[in-house]
Design a protein around this nucleic acid. Structure first.
Lengths: 378, 378
DNA sequence: AGGTAGCACTCGGTACAATCGAGTGCCAGG
DNA sequence: CCTGGCACTCGATTGTACCGAGTGCTACCT
C-alpha cells in the first residue's frame, strides 16, 4: 500500500565499507545511519532539491534533529561523504547528495507527501471531465501527471497479450483492398490492410468477406492474438482464400511488434530540469523512443523498484534522471504503469504523491467508466 | 511542382520604404534587389545558416557575384539593413538575416537542394522496409524526416471528414458493455465504448447486437461520420435500444474532436537548435500540443505558404522558428501534410529537398502499398 | 567522548581594468 | 561607382585582485 518504499533487502550498505567508519557500535540501529546523520542527510537532500545549489553545513544547523553547531554538522557530513551519501562538486563547496543519498531520503520518507488543494482539484476535475477512448484517456493522463509534477510523465497501457479475440471482421475497402479488424476483449481494436491481389479480383466480394469474417470469428473467439490456433478451411475457393488471407494478416498483426501503447507527456519540462543542453537533448531523444521507455519501465519494475534513481536503473543515457513509477491496478490486476521522469534531484515527495493518486484514480476509472451523474467522486 | 516557392504577390516591399534609398532607378529590376545585393544577401544567409555567427563584410568578399572589396560590401550591407533584410546584433558586429532576409533567400533559391547519397539511401530503405498500419507509417515518417533534416518533423494525416462509413459493428465486451467499431472508407477505424446500462441487462445479447450492427451498417454505409443521417427504428425493444445507443455513440464519436492524427517526431533536436533554454522549453511545449500544431500548419497552408519564417506565421511562441511544409498528395488529392520545424536559421535547401522527396514518396506509398517483390524502387 | 569554537586554507565567483580584434561608417581619391 | 584608408565601437578575452562561502583540523570544554 505504500508504493514508494522499495522492496530492496534491508541492508543496502555493502559491509566492506564500514571498517573506515570512526563511529562506535551504537546500541540502536546496527549499521543504519546515526539519527543525527540521517537528519542531516535528509536536510541536505531537501535543501538541494529546493535550491539546486550545494548546501553547506551552516545552512542546515537548526533544522529539526540537527540542533548542533556547524562544525559538528561538518564532521558528520564528512562521514556521510565517506559512506557515499554525499559528494562535493569541489573542495570548499557545499555537499550535494549522491544517488545513494537520494535513495536513503526516499526510503526513509515518512509520508509520500500530500498534494496541495489546487492539485487535488486538478485531478478531480480531470477525471470528472475526461472522456473518449481508452487511448485518449491514457494520453491525457500523461499530460495530467506532467502538470502535477512538472516533470515528464509516462503512461504505459496494458499489453494485449492476455486479451482474447472477441470479433474478427473483414471490410471491403475498394479494388483489391480489404481491412482486417480485430476487436479484443480489453476493448482494443487492431487492424491491418489486406491486399487481395489481382488474381482474386471480383471473386472476393462483400458476401464472401462477411462469410469469411464470421468463420474467423467463430473459430478465433476466445483465443489470444499470439496463439490464435488453426482455422479450418472448407468452403469454395474464394472463401478459403479470404480466410487464408485473413489468418495471415492476423499473424502479421500479432508479430508486428505491438506498439505497446505508451504515452509520454510533458517532455518539454525536461528542458528546465537540466542546465546542460546536451543532457536535455539526449534525455529527450530517449523519451522519444517509446520502445526503450517501455523496456526501461519494465526492467525497473522487474527489479521490484518503484523508484529508480540515477545509476540504479543501469541505463546510462538516463544516469542523471530518476523515475518514480506505480502500477495501475484494475480490479486487482495490473493494467499498466504510470510514472514520471525527472532529474535525480526531483521533488520526490510530490512526485510520489502525484503518481500514487493518479495511478489510483486511473485504476478506478479503467475499472468502471464514470458513474453517470454525480461526478464529485468519493 | 516547385513547392518551395511561395505564392506571395510579386511586390513584397511596401512602397513607402523606398524614398530613403539612395540607389538610382536601375534599368533592370524595378524595385527588386540589385544583383550584387542579392548575391551578398544570399551569401550572408548561407554563411549564417552554416556558422550561426554574425557574418562580416570581409567574410563574403569573393563569393560568386561578390567580386568587390569589403568596403563595397559594407555599403551594400548597410543598404540591405535599411531595407530590412539584415540586422546587426550590435554595432560593430557582423550582420544576421532578418525574417525578410530569409524570405528572400528562400524565394530566390534556384534549386531546392539535393540530398546526399546517404540520405537518398535512407529514404529508399525506409520506404522499402516500413510496414504496418497507416498510423505507424505516418509516425515513422515523422522520424525519418527528423533524421534527414535534423529538425523536428510533423506529419498530419488526412482528416476523416470526407471519408464515408464502410462498416459499423457492435461487439459485446462483457457485462453491460459493448464497443462500437466504425470502419471508414479511408481505412481508419474508430471505436467507442457503449454502456448498456443495468436496465437492459440480459436483453441485449450477441444476436441483438449483431442485428443492430447490420441495421446500422445498412443505413449508414456511404454516409460521413459528421452527417450520418437518420437511422430508422423498427424492431423489438431490445433491438431499438441497441440501435439508439449505437447511433448516439456514433454522434459522440463524430463530435469528440477527432484527434486529427498528427505525429511529431524528433523534437529532441530542438534542444540543440536554440541556445536559450527558455526558448527550447516553450517551443517544445508548443510541439506537444498537437492541436495547436495542426491549426498552425493549416493556417499556414491556407495562406498559400509552404515556407513560413518567424513572424510570417503570426504565431508568437514560435517566432524564432521556421516551418517548411509540403502537402502529401495521393492520386491527385491532398491527403495530409508533412513538414519540419526548425530555427529560422535552418538549412532551407536541405529542409526543402527532404520535405519534398518524403512527401512524394509518402504519397506514392499511400496510393498503393509496396509492389511486393522488387523493393529497389524507381 | 562527543560537541564546540576558532583558525588557516581552498577555491569558485565576481568585479574591474586592460587589451584585442572583428567589424563598422565615412571619406577622399582613383 | 568602387576602393583603400582611417577612426571608432564594442563584445569578447585575459589578467588580477578580492571576497566569501565553505571546509578540515585542532585545541578546548563539558
Amino acid at each position: 500500500m505504500v508504493p514508494h518504499r522499495t522492496a530492496r533487502p534491508a541492508r543496502p550498505a555493502p559491509p566492506s565499507s564500514r571498517d573506515e567508519s570512526p563511529a562506535p557500535a551504537h546500541p540502536e540501529g546496527d549499521l543504519e545511519l546515526d539519527l543525527r546523520k540521517a537528519a542531516i542527510l535528509t536536510a541536505v537532500v531537501s535543501e538541494y532539491i529546493e535550491t539546486a545549489e550545494p548546501v553547506g553545513s551552516a545552512h542546515i544547523t537548526g533544522t529539526p534533529g540537527v540542533e548542533v553547531s556547524s562544525a559538528t554538522v561538518r564532521s558528520d557530513m564528512a562521514a556521510l561523504e565517506r559512506d557515499g551519501y554525499l559528494t562535493q562538486p569541489h573542495t570548499s563547496a557545499g555537499r550535494i547528495p549522491t544517488d545513494k543519498g537520494y535513495r536513503f531520503f526516499v526510503d526513509t520518507l515518512a509520508t509520500p507527501g500530500t498534494l496541495g488543494p489546487a492539485q487535488r482539484q486538478e485531478v478531480r476535475r480531470f477525471f470528472a471531465h475526461v472522456h473518449g477512448a481508452v487511448e485518449d484517456l491514457l494520453g491525457h493522463t500523461s499530460g495530467l501527471l506532467a502538470n502535477l509534477t512538472d516533470y515528464a510523465a509516462v503512461v504505459v497501457g496494458p499489453t494485449h497479450e492476455t486479451a482474447t479475440i472477441r470479433s474478427v471482421q473483414l471490410v471491403d475497402l475498394g479494388p483489391n483492398l480489404a481491412l482486417l479488424v480485430v476487436v479484443l476483449s480489453d476493448g482494443a481494436v487492431e487492424k491491418r490492410a489486406i491486399e487481395l491481389g489481382a488474381d482474386h479480383a471480383g471473386q472476393i466480394d462483400d458476401t464472401v468477406l462477411a462469410a469469411a469474417a464470421a468463420h474467423l470469428t467463430a473459430h478465433l473467439r476466445g483465443r489470444t492474438l499470439t496463439d490464435p490456433g488453426i482455422v479450418p478451411e472448407g468452403g469454395d475457393a474464394a472463401f478459403d482464400t479470404a480466410v487464408r488471407l485473413g489468418t495471415q494478416a492476423l499473424g502479421e498483426l500479432a508479430s508486428a511488434g505491438e506498439p505497446e501503447n505508451v504515452f509520454v507527456g510533458g517532455s518539454s519540462r525536461m528542458a528546465s530540469a537540466f542546465d546542460a543542453v546536451e543532457t536535455v537533448r539526449s534525455v529527450l531523444s530517449i523519451l522519444e523512443q517509446q520502445l526503450v521507455v517501455v523496456e526501461l519501465v519494465e526492467h525497473i519494475l522487474d527489479r521490484g523498484l518503484s523508484v529508480a534513481i540515477g545509476s540504479e536503473h543501469g541505463f546510462e543515457p538516463l544516469a542523471s534522471c530518476a523515475l518514480v513509477l506505480a502500477p495501475v491496478s484494475v480490479d486487482g490486476e495490473t493494467a499498466g504503469t504510470i510514472g514520471v521522469v525527472g532529474p535525480t534531484r526531483m521533488n520526490y515527495p510530490r512526485a510520489l504523491a502525484s503518481v500514487q493518486i493518479v495511478a489510483e484514480r486511473l485504476g478506478e476509472r479503467l475499472a468502471g467508466p464514470p458513474a453517470d451523474g454525480g461526478d464529485r467522486g468519493r
